Simulated assay, not measured.
Amino acid sequence: MINILQWILGALILVASLLSVYNSFRSRRSVDARLRGLYASRMNMSMGLMLILIALIQMLLFEGSSIRVVVGSVFFLLGMFNLFAGIRNHSHFKKLPS
């Protein structure tokens, strides 16, 4: 069961990482400011999800040492911040006229 969970979380981290890189390239190459903001916010959401998944791996799949719990908590908080900032920015840039 633990092995399956590890593979699933690893695959999700890989997908979130690839989405983050993809949206980062699209954001940097976009000329339109609205699209640049939308892609950057999607990159933030992907990065936040990736950090949350890394924190879950740290907290669930390994023995609980104090350093692991601290690192997992920091990754979780950074991930939540990136996720909510990305959602907020996405809604802001979505409302802008094309």
Score class of each variant (00 low, 15 high):
residue 95 K to P: 01
residue 11 A to L: 15
residue 15 V to M: 11
residue 16 A to R: 02
residue 56 L to A: 14
residue 3 N to V: 10
residue 29 R to H: 06
residue 88 R to T: 14
residue 10 G to C: 07
residue 49 L to Y: 00
residue 44 N to C: 08
residue 33 A to I: 12
residue 81 F to L: 15
residue 54 I to E: 07
residue 26 R to L: 15
residue 41 S to P: 02
residue 25 F to T: 08
residue 12 L to V: 07
residue 50 M to K: 08
residue 93 F to W: 10
residue 5 L to H: 04
residue 14 L to T: 13
residue 29 R to V: 06
residue 77 L to Y: 02
residue 6 Q to R: 13
residue 9 L to Q: 08
residue 94 K to S: 11
residue 56 L to M: 14
residue 58 Q to T: 03
residue 88 R to S: 13
residue 35 L to T: 01
residue 63 E to W: 06
residue 14 L to R: 02
residue 46 S to Y: 01
residue 94 K to T: 11
residue 34 R to I: 07
residue 14 L to S: 13
residue 61 L to W: 07
residue 33 A to N: 06
residue 85 A to C: 12
residue 56 L to H: 03
residue 80 M to T: 15
residue 72 G to I: 03
residue 8 I to Q: 05
residue 50 M to C: 13
residue 73 S to D: 06
residue 25 F to E: 07
residue 83 L to D: 03
residue 50 M to I: 01
residue 37 G to Y: 00
residue 18 L to G: 07
residue 44 N to M: 12
residue 76 F to L: 15
residue 77 L to A: 15
residue 19 L to I: 06
residue 69 V to A: 07
residue 86 G to F: 04
residue 46 S to N: 10
residue 92 H to P: 00
residue 39 Y to C: 02
residue 54 I to Y: 10
residue 70 V to Q: 03
residue 2 I to G: 14
residue 42 R to S: 04
residue 46 S to H: 00
